[in-house]
């Protein structure tokens, strides 16, 4: 049997040093192309850690995953349909508040998340002190401080990734509490969502998107219905050619 290759998605805001991290992790083992049918650059690379192979996809840098643009749609679809073994969310430690916005959205979509708190060197210079342990506790997922440009924190990140893919880390992602009106609507919709979509997809997130009137998710649902209906069907995402 072939050795298993783990898939890692790299998400984050623009200007967070996401590509720097991607380059540090993959070195020269990377190539770029287009996401099929989209004018969005698709970058993937490979690396080995402790004799195990990892494939890493550099998702487009976006401010959110609400599919306002082709970039956001690509990133969202990959996380939802390709189900990467780990999603790394790269945050700019000097602008945590705005960056957390995306992290919270990813936490609604998957529980296999590691937060990469990048640009820690910059934060230190600016006198920004972040309580990593407390942040990790609040978010319910590991938080790894990084300075990707200086290659600091990479070892700890790789170790955390390895432990997560082997199921050695239990996560309890933070659940964002919405207004009472919205929570009531989610509660009403949730049973139906679970029935139609199945256990395989994050029901609360799907319900939220439906309430938001996300037509592009509906589009994805109807064009790949079997991926939702068939239990255990592995969905080859839009980037199937590279698999």
């Amino acid at each position: 049997m072939n050795k298993r290759e783990y898939t890692i998605a790299l998400a984050g805001n623009p200007n967070t040093g996401k590509s720097t991290l991607f380059n540090v992790l993959t070195g020269l083992r990377q190539h770029t192309g287009n996401w099929p049918g989209k004018t969005v650059i698709h970058a993937e690379g490979f690396f080995t850690y402790k004799n195990e192979e990892y494939r890493i996809i550099d998702l487009p840098g976006t401010y959110s995953l609400y599919s306002n643009s082709a970039d956001e749609e690509v990133a969202r679809d990959f996380i939802i349909f390709s189900k990467p073994d780990v999603t790394l969310v790269v945050l700019d430690a000097t602008a945590l508040e705005r960056n957390l916005n995306l992290a919270l959205q990813v936490l609604e979509m998957t529980d296999r998340v590691i937060i990469c708190l990048n640009l820690m060197d910059e934060a230190k210079k600016k006198g920004i002190v972040i309580d990593i342990a407390n942040l990790s506790k609040k978010l319910g997922v590991p938080v790894v401080p990084l300075a990707a440009r200086n290659k600091e924190g990479i070892e700890e990140l790789l170790e955390t990734v390895a432990r997560m893919v082997h199921g050695e880390i239990n996560t309890t992602p933070l659940v964002v509490a919405y207004s009472r009106a919205i929570e009531e609507k989610i509660a009403k919709l949730l049973p139906l969502v679970k029935e139609v979509v199945g256990e395989e997809y994050p029901a609360r997130w799907v319900a939220l998107r439906l309430l938001d009137g996300d037509t592009s998710l509906l589009h994805a649902l109807q064009h790949h219905p079997h991926h939702f209906l068939k239990e255990g069907a592995t969905y080859a995402c839009h980037c199937a050619k590279s698999v």
């Binding site: 401010y63 959110s64 609400y66 306002n68 643009s69 508040e97 705005r98 916005n101």
Partner: peptide, 11 residues
């Protein structure tokens, strides 16, 4: 539309 959503995303 899109502009509103983008403004929201930015804070």
């Amino acid at each position: 539309g899109t502009m509103k959503r983008r403004l929201l995303d930015l804070g």
